[in-house]
């Protein structure tokens, strides 16, 4: 190896080495004998939920005659559009898109459809209509969470809402779902709402600050994802307020299920990553094989997880 690189500019040899490394990593995905290839671009493989959807796709694909080419858009819609363009150039049989943004990821759908390649959107929507959509209605998740808070507080109390990254589809829908449901319960009053950008540490700081202002008046916290719910929970526990305050969040990630099991977190709302991942690959295969799908909108329902039914969800992991 060394001999070939002698005399090369060090930067060039570094580049060659990293290319060799990249090909080495890629060989696993290049399996022979798989008749169909589906290009998959995911919102962000740094998010546990998205990773779970991806894992479900891979698991389902391994049982079927299909090869998945999975790439990470790293929350960048522009990058996602480029990834779809290169899928088109490589001539994949179908594309599964886990959109970064409602508007900005739309060109990806348009280009694929123009090239005659079927597109399935998974988990969230784009403005342009794909051949099929497999996901959940995010408003429903917030409705379930707020209804549970109403039940726990007897319909009366002061609520704090921790929002996701402002402007993302999930935040917009979870906020509107929550506000619509809160309107049905006039006894529930929102003391404050604020974004913690889906982040556990940020939610913990925010909750610490809120405890300083609202202290004993807080009855419940609704966090738009589990990471933030767990951060709030920790701040409340440190301030000795947890016995008094109910915390409900969304996604049912592993840590949150553990916290529900320990009766620290009051509830989480399960978003079915397995159902979505599997459904997306099924829809893509149906489009490849028959050119159509039974339903263009497959909605996977959300489910409330409390200490009573948490074991069933822990076992799924």
């Amino acid at each position: 190896m060394r001999k070939y690189f002698n005399g090369l500019h060090p930067a060039a040899s570094l580049l060659l080495l990293s290319l060799a490394f990249a090909f080495g990593c890629n060989t696993k995905a290049r399996q022979a004998g798989k008749p169909y290839r589906i290009g998959v671009t995911m919102l962000s493989l740094q998010s546990e939920f998205v990773v779970n959807v991806k894992d479900a796709m891979e698991k389902y694909a391994s049982n079927d005659s299909v090869e998945l080419l999975i790439v990470d858009a790293e929350r960048n819609a522009d990058k996602q559009v480029q990834q779809v363009e290169s899928f088109i150039a490589r001539g994949v049989d179908a594309i599964i898109l886990n959109p970064c943004e409602v508007e900005a990821s739309s060109p990806a759908v348009d280009r694929a459809r123009k090239a005659g390649i079927p597109v399935v959107n998974v988990n969230s929507e784009t403005k342009s209509t794909p051949d099929a959509f497999v996901g959940s209605n995010d408003e429903e998740s917030a409705e379930i969470a707020i209804e549970h808070i109403a039940k726990l507080t007897g319909g009366n109390g002061n609520v704090l809402m921790i929002e996701g990254y402002i402007g993302q589809a999930a935040q917009i829908k979870r906020t509107s779902g929550a506000e619509r449901t809160l309107a049905k319960h006039p006894g529930l009053k929102v003391l404050a709402k604020q974004s913690a950008e889906w982040d556990r540490a940020k939610a913990m700081s925010l909750m610490e600050n809120w405890i300083q202002v609202h202290g004993d008046r807080i009855d419940a916290v609704f966090a738009q994802n589990d990471e933030m719910g767990l951060g709030a929970l920790q701040a409340l526990e440190q301030a000795g307020l947890k016995n008094k305050v109910k915390v409900v969040s969304i996604d049912a990630i592993r840590d949150a299920l553990g916290a529900v099991k320990e009766k620290r977190l009051d509830a989480t709302v399960y978003q079915d990553a397995q159902g979505q991942g599997q459904g997306a690959v099924q829809a893509a295969l149906a489009l490849i094989r028959t050119g159509k799908v039974e339903k263009t909108q497959v909605l996977i329902p959300f489910q409330l997880v409390t200490s009573e039914n948490v074991d069933a969800y822990l076992n799924r992991r």
Binding site: S47, R200, A201, L230, G231, Q234
Partner: peptide, 13 residues
């Protein structure tokens, strides 16, 4: 300090 404050090691922290 961050990992112990939020009781987890977060790769996207």
């Amino acid at each position: 300090v961050l990992a112990s404050r939020i009781n987890t090691g977060q790769p996207n922290a």
